[in-house]
Design a protein around this nucleic acid. Structure first.
Lengths: 211, 211
DNA sequence: TCATTTATTGGCACCATCTGCCATTAAGCG
DNA sequence: CGCTTAATGGCAGATGGTGCCAATAAATGA
């Protein structure tokens, strides 16, 4: 009978807000990624990351159940951005056109971290453990994509056709992102990003040539 | 000056043949997968797998550097089969037609294990750790695919367009395979497999509708 | 058959990963 | 300040995984 979130005469210390927690995770992840890049994943211990982040090892493991998950906060920034673009895709518009229109400004908004994000993507190309975490993350994003696409197509997100399209789109994005990460190893320019956008666009076209 | 494999007055115990090693790996992997299915990955220790396989724990770790890799031998059977089909794809033929023609007999050839393979795929849908291993494996297969496609297109395998097509194809195959694995949880029939083939075919068509 | 050579195996020590449990501290509220 | 609840830290312990070395297996040559 009672509503889900009713009857809450909250007492005691309140749980930390979600954003607070995300910020903490992000902060730790920065330290971790730096260490990963400097000495490799295997050579970086949880203890080391915890120490660098100024928390106890125990709480570090609470924030990141596996040490490879340290790349998640940065990487989700990227996939979330793409999902947002797709979510804003108007029905009557071609995807490629929408990308050209909407992608660039969004990247500008998140550009504070874009350098870091791309360096993490590069890391995942060398470090197997990180790559695995990356791929898992992408699959989560694929689910989100399927959700959006399903709604657009008026079908359930679990529908095979929907999933196929989501997976294909995700795959295109993966290849393009890997490529731009490699290309931008010597610093990110506006050109780099526009190149990325164009690359996704042409890659989508290339797909159609395959059928 | 001398040839690669010349001047070999081999002495001492010879290394085991590659097939021998693969067979051993496959054998261990069967035990491991059974245990994974019965009690979950986390609850299955390396010691347990080793014991079930009749080898010492130490050699188990030598065969499988991480315990999740135990799924590889079975799963590679599947992706290798698909790669072989693509490799045999004649230039002048449509991919879909080739699939319809070549896919079915090949599955028949490897059908001894097909039940086991599909059950492993199902496992990867529930066990995060196995899923990660699966995705890594698929990416290796994607490289092989890119190799084949690159040759067909007269381009290097590293070419972005080639990689995009390989990734998209791989993605389609992934979704279809996940789906057929789910569908075939109650036993595999010829119908199931033909359904899989058709599903890949139509999925490839669907892709083109997305552009 | 025996010595020699090389590859695999197993045993052991050891560090890292991660978890459960509990005491301590922090943050809100009357 | 007491009361309550959440977060943290410390510690023990199981598991994952590696390096090292001794033991054994499989070949060859004398």
């Amino acid at each position: 009978m009672t509503d889900v979130a009713t009857e809450k005469p909250r007492r005691g210390r309140p749980p930390v807000s979600d954003e607070q927690r995300q910020r903490q995770r992000l902060d730790i992840s920065r330290h971790a990624v730096r260490l990963f890049a400097e000495q490799g994943v295997a050579a970086t211990s949880g203890e080391q990351i915890a120490q660098a982040s100024g928390v106890s090892e125990r709480t570090f493991w609470r924030y990141f159940p596996q040490k490879e998950s340290c790349v998640e906060p940065l990487l989700t920034k990227m996939v979330d951005a793409f999902c947002a673009v797709v979510r804003a895709w108007p029905r009557e518009m071609e995807l490629i056109d929408h990308l050209r229109e909407a992608y660039s400004p969004l990247l500008g908004a998140a550009s504070e971290d874009i350098e870091a994000v791309l360096s993490v993507v590069r890391l995942t190309q060398e470090e197997r453990a990180l790559r695995a975490a990356y791929l898992m993350l992408r699959e989560r994003a694929e689910d989100a994509l399927a959700e959006v696409l399903g709604e657009r197509m008026g079908r359930p997100a679990g529908d095979v056709e929907v999933r196929v399209q989501a997976a294909a789109m995700s795959a295109v994005l993966k290849v393009s992102t890997d490529d731009v990460a490699r290309a931008a190893s010597g610093g990110v320019t506006t050109e780099t990003l526009e190149g990325h956008r164009e690359q996704i666009a042409t890659a989508l076209r290339d797909l159609s040539r395959m059928l």
